[in-house]
Computed example of a mutant assay.
Amino acid sequence: MEFKSLITTRYSVRKYKPERLSEELLNEVLEAGRMAPTAVNYQPFVFIVINDPEKLKALYEAYPREWFAKAPQVIVICSDHSASWKRGHDGKDHADIDVAIATDHMTLRATELGLGTCWVCNFDPGKVSKALNLPGHIEPTVLLPIGRPEEVEAPIKKRKPLSELVRFNGY
């Protein structure tokens, strides 16, 4: 698939077929995240694959949406703030930026493989941390349900026109 087609085809999938992905397919997606660029190549992320029914139920407690409960597996993408690059001028931590790039790489690779994903950030991180027994320096940043979509027809995306988003040589 060409890149332009890939980025226009990708959409947030909220209906999944119940079967889990093969280890081979899952590793293709995880590898795409691993290959993502990061600030100073620090790679401050951890990918935790959840496919155990009890762990999935615990994730549902942190994000109680009916569609989410039906996802066959979820990748919890975590920021490792102890391993992230901090900008010298103001100390800005780039872990979340690096996680976002890795997540985007995974969503695009999943789309290319005919799979569906949906970024989920509106969850209770304390519940996720507790359920997965995460150490204090590891922050759950994105829940990424992944599987085969029930519907493969991408909805029409609503996007602002470039004229509202682009400026030249200043604001």
Rank of each mutant, 00 (worst) to 15 (best):
Gly33Ala: 11
Met35Ala: 10
Ala39Pro: 05
Ala39Cys: 00
Val40Ser: 11
Phe47Gln: 13
Ile48Asp: 04
Ile50Tyr: 05
Asn51Tyr: 10
Asp52Trp: 01
Lys57Asp: 14
Glu61Ala: 15
Tyr63Arg: 12
Tyr63Val: 05
Pro64Asp: 12
Ala69His: 07
Lys70Asn: 14
Cys78Leu: 10
Asp80Gln: 11
His81Gly: 00
Lys86Gly: 07
Lys86Gln: 14
Gly88Phe: 05
Gly88Val: 04
His89Gln: 03
Asp90Tyr: 00
Gly91Ser: 03
Lys92Gly: 00
Ile97His: 08
Ile97Asp: 01
Val99His: 00
Val99Glu: 01
Ala100Gln: 04
Ala102Gly: 06
Thr103Ile: 06
Asp104Pro: 00
Asp104Gly: 09
His105Asn: 13
Glu112Leu: 00
Glu112Lys: 03
Gly114Cys: 10
Leu115Phe: 09
Leu115Val: 08
Trp119Gln: 13
Val128Met: 15
Ser129Asn: 09
Ser129His: 10
Ala131Ile: 09
Leu132Asp: 08
Leu132Thr: 11
Asn133Gln: 14
His137Val: 03
Ile138Val: 15
Ile146Cys: 02
Arg148Asp: 07
Glu150Ser: 15
Glu153Val: 13
Ala154Asp: 00
Pro155Gly: 09
Ile156Asn: 11
Lys157Trp: 09
Lys157Thr: 03
Lys158Gly: 04
Lys158Pro: 00
Lys160Thr: 00
Pro161Gly: 03
Val166Lys: 13
Phe168Gly: 01
Asn169Phe: 12
Gly170His: 09
Gly170Asn: 05
